Amino acid sequence: MNRIELINLYGQGITDCETSPFEMLETLHIRSELHQLSLTKEEKKMVAAYDLKLLGNAEQVFEHTSKAYDFSASKEKMDEWWWHLDLLLKGEILFNATSLYDDVI
């Protein structure tokens, strides 16, 4: 699967809370895969736009995905903030858009 297809799958996944919690969990895995890739500026912009949608729907995504995943037990690095939606929603971590801005502008 190429990068654009992965980005589009991520985008579809984070906007559809009607899927199973396991499919939403797979969407977060796709986001982690994207995090590891060297993306072009255009691809970074696409991912950033979907990240903003995820942030806007963070509570819904958290509630839905929590049926299949315990966010409080996440051992993922903090730079993969999508695995720490519980902390994000509690205000214990903040999403830093500055580095994202530098990467895509």
Rank of each mutant, 00 (worst) to 15 (best):
S32K: 06
K41S: 06
H35E: 10
T19P: 03
D103W: 04
L88A: 05
D79H: 13
N57G: 07
A49F: 09
H29C: 08
W81L: 01
T40K: 10
E26R: 13
E5L: 11
E5Q: 14
A97K: 12
L25W: 06
D51S: 07
K44L: 05
K77P: 03
I4P: 01
A58P: 05
F71Q: 07
R31M: 04
E42W: 01
I93H: 01
A73E: 13
I30K: 01
S72Q: 11
P21L: 05
A48H: 08
V61R: 00
R31T: 03
I105A: 10
H35Y: 15
T15G: 04
I14C: 05
E59D: 11
R31Y: 03
D103R: 15
E26I: 13
H29Q: 12
F95T: 08
N8V: 06
M46V: 07
I30F: 04
H29T: 12
F62Y: 15
L55M: 13
S99R: 14
L89F: 05
D16I: 04
T19G: 00
S66V: 02
Q12C: 10
K90D: 09
K44P: 01
E33N: 13
I30S: 01
T27E: 00
E43P: 03
S74A: 14
A48R: 11
A48C: 12
M78A: 09
T27D: 03
S74C: 10
V61C: 00
L89I: 08
E63I: 05
L9E: 14
F62W: 15
N57K: 13
K75Y: 01
H64Y: 07
D79V: 05
H35I: 03
G11D: 02
L94I: 12
G91S: 12
N57R: 12
K90N: 09
A49G: 07
G56N: 07
K45R: 15
V47D: 02
W81A: 00
I4A: 08
N8S: 15
F71S: 05
K90T: 14
A58N: 07
D70I: 06
L85F: 02
E76S: 07
F62V: 09
Y69A: 01
T27V: 05
E92T: 06
F22Y: 14
W83H: 04
T40A: 07
C17Y: 13
L9K: 11
D103K: 15
T98S: 02
E92H: 15
G91A: 02
G13M: 04
S99A: 11
G56D: 09
T27I: 02
T27A: 06
L89A: 07
D70H: 08
L6N: 08
S66C: 05
I14Y: 00
T27R: 04
E59L: 10
E43V: 11
E76A: 14
K77V: 03
L37H: 14
L85W: 03
T65D: 00
Q60F: 10
L87S: 06
R31L: 07
T19R: 14
R3G: 01
E43T: 06
E26N: 14
E23C: 09
M1Q: 09
A49S: 13
T98P: 00
T19V: 07
K41W: 01
L39K: 10
E63G: 01
L6A: 02
N96V: 04
R3W: 02
E26F: 11
K77N: 08
K67H: 06
L55K: 08
D102N: 15
S74V: 05
I7V: 10
L6R: 10
I7C: 00
